[in-house]
């Protein structure tokens, strides 16, 4: 019972990841795609958490932190690219 419900939760999270993937491919603007990438990475973090519960191991918990940090840094870099056209600015203000 416990494991069946865990696998059902993993299935629903993967459905939600696929919906975000649809928005990533279809998305009208670049900001839609950034948003969908963010949602996909959060759903994958949830899948990894439920997998580590179902397998009763703590070895996958590093993956959660790693994907979280990578998703945040990628979102910040892509947003700066959409806003200004460059990621790392070389010119000073004055």
């Amino acid at each position: 019972m416990f494991h069946n419900l865990l696998y059902m939760a993993m299935f629903l999270l993967s459905v939600s990841t696929l919906v975000a993937l649809y928005r990533l491919i279809k998305g009208a603007t670049a900001s839609d795609r950034i948003l969908a990438l963010d949602a996909m990475s959060y759903n994958i973090i949830g899948i990894v958490t439920i997998l580590s519960i179902a397998l009763n191991t703590q070895n996958y918990l590093d993956v959660i932190l790693l994907i979280g940090i990578l998703a945040f840094l990628g979102t910040v870099a892509l947003c700066k690219y959409v806003e200004r056209g460059v990621v790392i600015e070389h010119e000073r203000d004055n």
Partner: peptide, 11 residues
């Protein structure tokens, strides 16, 4: 999981 599914419907 239900909240993530609702947010994907919104997306």
């Amino acid at each position: 999981t239900a909240l993530s599914l609702f947010s994907s419907i919104g997306l």
